[in-house]
Design a binder for these strands. Structure first.
Lengths: 195, 195
DNA sequence: ACCCGTAGAATGAACCGCGATTCAGTCGAG
DNA sequence: CTCGACTGAATCGCGGTTCATTCTACGGGT
């Protein structure tokens, strides 16, 4: 009887191993050891090493976006939604150090990720941000000719870089402490003058 | 007599090959073929494959920052400096498609780059942005308690993400057309209210 | 001008380590 | 006993790196 949550255990092990060593320098056997199983067993659940990475990203990213979407629905005005989004983005990464390492650093090997495999999950996140911005424009809270697509990338890129710096540094400070600064700069940037 | 610009030819070839195939999927022999030399020759100039990548990044990044620094010195107020910086950042990437691909997509394998080898060159860029922001604060053009470090990352991240999206997309539009939007959002974000 | 010797640049086939993947055998539950 | 999950040693292809060999440019001797 196949253990139904073995794939999950493998993924969690892979996160820790990739975080420690990086995708290309990790052996499949390392993941196996970390998961407490034999290397061959992995191939009962995943066709290739790459599939582990793709699956892990898909899953975690989808989960992340779903979580944000749920939380954000509780806020009503667009500014509050964005502030909450930024704060949660940082909080989640901060509380999952290994995952953060993988997402921020290892997943950037473009050909496989942002392009291709996980484009769908990433764009779901972009859609989430984009729709908040559109609501804000419609509600007259943000500048009427805000280029929403560019602004979406600006916010995502800003959060992403702040997070990456935090991961690459010694993590010698609390990531979430930067949340307000990032949100404030962005909100001032997209809001009507003098608001 | 060693050809003194053979290393340069190898680097230019490597940029094209890495852009096409990605670092890990490129053979050293592919770079050799692209450069019109034998694979062994590469080892007369570079100790390992990785050294090619590190050198290429170091060199191009240093060149890039030096260029920006020079251009920006021509502007006098901080806002104009930042607008020019954003515009040039995009222009350079747009005019060097292969280089853009490598820098935006391939170089993100953190263990080797942002961390380690090229940290110095990257932080030179951060310093450039940071010092413009500080000047702006000192001159009273930007918000007095602007968290300069965070703001630096916000701007860099924003440009970076807009550029990455452009590279990953089909490049079906002009990257530089987003420059004003990015600069405007950021400047409004860091400036005094009602300016 | 021509030849030849030499240094060192270039070559590319072969080597070799690595690690993803396989699969013949073991184990344990029902 | 049977079935299928699990094991992990052996396989196998890949590609970075090496190095014995070839080529080239130059200079000095005739």
């Amino acid at each position: 009887m196949r253990d139904p949550d073995k794939p999950q255990q493998i993924i969690e092990a892979a996160i820790r191993v990739f975080a420690r060593t990086g995708y290309y320098s990790s052996r499949v056997s390392d993941i196996a050891r970390e998961a407490g199983i034999a290397s061959g067993t992995i191939y009962l659940y995943f066709k290739t090493k790459e599939e582990i990475l793709v699956t892990l990203f898909r899953e975690k990213m989808a989960e992340f976006v779903a979580f944000l979407r749920r939380e954000i629905a509780e806020e009503h005005d667009p500014e509050a939604k964005l502030r909450r989004l930024v704060r949660l983005h940082f909080t989640v990464l901060e509380q999952n150090a290994a995952l953060a390492e993988v997402v921020q650093v290892e997943l950037r090997q473009g050909h496989k990720f942002f392009r291709g495999a996980s484009a769908h999950e990433v764009s779901a996140y972009f859609d989430l941000i984009g729709s908040i911005l559109e609501d804000g424009v419609a509600a007259g809270r943000f500048h009427a000719d805000l280029p929403v697509k560019v602004a979406t990338k600006v916010l995502f890129g800003a959060m992403d870089q702040v997070a990456t710096s935090w991961v690459l540094g010694k993590r010698g400070y609390r990531l979430v402490d930067s949340a307000d600064a990032v949100a404030t700069i962005f909100l001032k940037g997209v809001s009507h003058d003098g608001v």
